[in-house]
Design a binder for these strands. Structure first.
Lengths: 353, 353
DNA sequence: CTCCGAACGCAAACCGGTTTGTAAGCAAGG
DNA sequence: CCTTGCTTACAAACCGGTTTGCGTTCGGAG
């Protein structure tokens, strides 16, 4: 307070009128006027694209602080810059995986003052294409696509506009982008390893549909893991579900009917595992003593059902974080071949296995 | 196609070079040149702020279609317009209530070509203030605040910037905004009515903390409902939890120890209700024959635990939808007193009550 | 002392729209 | 025939930044 009552006082008085007082937020011209330099110089100080003498730099920065000047978002965008925005396209926001991913993404890009534009494909409105077009218009810096319903074709205008793209899940065929995903093969392997360590030697599996990547990768991983432990994967002990609780129960019924009944069942997701628990209960089998059940995902309900579900947690939040970091890295350096990052899962040991 | 070979041809030829061919997307000048009118006229056709002759309008629109012209987002913003963006601030995105709300909001505002900027307070990064400042900068049209951690003070710059605000939950004291929330009193009343209709005459309640609105409102609603059914609320049968599963179990233990043991317990949320189920199981009581349990929220797990939980569903998605509609309505007509909308919940009848 | 290059700062043009003030064309009224 | 009034379209200024090209100033070398 005291310090302001010296030399700059006269200046601050006169500019105070039209800068702080009357019109809205301060503009670059206000700053320039008050600092006694030109707009150009202020711009250079702020962007650092051209050298400015230390004295001038200081003087300008002080005024910037004083006036609380912030560059106008639209003016910035209009003169060719990008928008400090990343778009996130998710398949289905009501699936808890995606909110966690969104949070991780926000954390990562927030550190660099970027903001997240959200699109939930599952909402139906507006159509994805409209959203992606909007993203181009707003010159987003990057897009994270975590939705199978977005074909390569739709991403092309985006890439053409200079935005970076990161895909979550399996790599795309047509367009090559950075990819981040879970390591489905190892998830299955770790699950099997756990069951084996608990003494189980006769295992079964409830797999997801094999035509999609996580389905087949987890099934393959399971088979390979059995072999690695010196066990033979039995075709009969492989049931297929469609990720739903009901399909899990049905599959479990089949497995429990087998001649060589498995003492442990690896389920490719938690929902099917919960279905398997339903089935076990209705058959009068107790879990885990009669049969152990292990899931994948660690959804909320996994800890709430009883017996609580032992499961392999896929760290959605970290996937989001990594996606954000890949995006930022690409923005700094757009060259180089596409990267693929596998995030580390871990086993959550509860009661069911 | 054929039609293009007449008068405008010469013009379209020369502009075709630098409009469609070389540089990026078409600008308003390109359109003007090709349509043989001025920028001004094109602008008026597009915005409809001044009358334009039907013939000119048609001509311009045809060219707009042909060239796939879209107004530049930044230029639009720079010349004083708002940004076709609404911001959503949520308390904790990993709580399934909020993603559902987000979806509803997207559906509502998407119909008017608005896009959703997301901020998850729970993520910690970036700080809320930074996000809200960013919202002001980007001149968002509106903000939906569904987060208790956002005090009035922080909203002021936003309101000053002309953005509309809708609060989800309880009304604010200082600033008056539109509000949308569930009807907590009636939720409790409907729950009690259901239990009553199942023949229960001795009830208990596991309430949330009474210093927050949904906690006290649900407790009050419960008491009033008892009286409305000619029953006397017993102080002893009122336990208080903190919304967690553990607190629910503890409270249930208390209630089941009572001399006049309740045959039915209304829990102010599902998590505590699941805790109550834990307690009942460990006490060897069967639900619902020995004691009925009823929750509020209808979280995913409600359908997955066993016995599955009868609960009152708070329609988060509809809350989001309504919030979006209130926002749009306010943009059309900023005048009028703040509105408060209560959304309709409904009872989901499962096994536990 | 003169000349040269580097360092520094400025004016003006530009990004792509909107908005205001005004001119031109035309029909109806005095 | 000349206003008057209305419709329609345009040129120019403006929003708030960035970027380019150029003129000054200054220190050091010739």
């Amino acid at each position: 307070m005291e310090e302001m009552d010296d030399a700059p006082e006269a200046t601050s008085r006169q500019t105070g009128l039209d800068a702080a007082g009357s019109k809205g937020p301060a503009t670059i011209s206000d700053v320039a006027a008050r600092a006694g330099v030109s707009k150009t110089t202020v711009s250079h100080v702020l962007s650092g694209r051209r050298p400015v003498s230390e004295a001038t730099r200081r003087k300008v920065m002080r005024v910037v602080e004083e006036m609380g000047f912030q560059q106008n978002f639209f003016a910035l965008g209009l003169s060719g810059r990008r928008s400090q925005t990343v778009a996130l396209v998710v398949q289905d926001l009501t699936n808890p995986f995606y909110p966690a991913l969104a949070r991780g993404l926000q954390q990562a890009v927030g550190k660099r003052d970027h903001v997240v534009l959200l699109a939930d494909v599952g909402a139906g409105t507006p159509p994805i294409e409209a959203f992606l077009n909007e993203a181009v218009q707003r010159r987003v810096d990057g897009v994270v696509v975590a939705a199978v319903d977005v074909p390569d074709r739709m991403l092309e205008p985006l890439l053409a506009s200079g935005a970076r793209v990161v895909t979550v899940g399996s790599p795309r065929h047509g367009t090559s982008t950075d990819v981040v995903s879970s390591d489905d093969g190892r998830i299955a392997a770790d699950a099997v390893a756990h069951l084996y360590s608990q003494g189980h030697r006769t295992m079964g599996v409830i797999s997801g549909p094999v035509r999609v990547a996580p389905g087949s990768a987890r099934l393959d991983g399971y088979r390979q893991a059995l072999r690695d432990h010196g066990l033979r994967p039995l075709r009969a002990a492989e049931a297929v579900g469609d990720w739903t609780r009901e399909s899990g129960a049905k599959a479990m019924n089949l497995l429990m009917d087998l001649e060589r009944r498995p003492t442990a069942v690896f389920c490719a997701n938690d929902l099917m595992a919960i279905g398997a628990l339903d089935s076990a209960r209705s058959l009068g089998l107790s879990v885990p003593s009669d049969v152990a059940v292990l899931g994948v995902d660690d959804i909320d309900a996994a800890g709430l059902v009883s017996p609580s579900l032992t499961t392999v947690r896929v760290p959605a939040q970290e996937i989001g974080r990594v996606a954000g970091e890949l995006l930022l890295a690409r923005m700094d350096d757009p060259t180089g071949t596409p990267r693929r990052v596998l995030v580390q899962h871990h086993l959550v040991h509860r009661e069911s296995a």
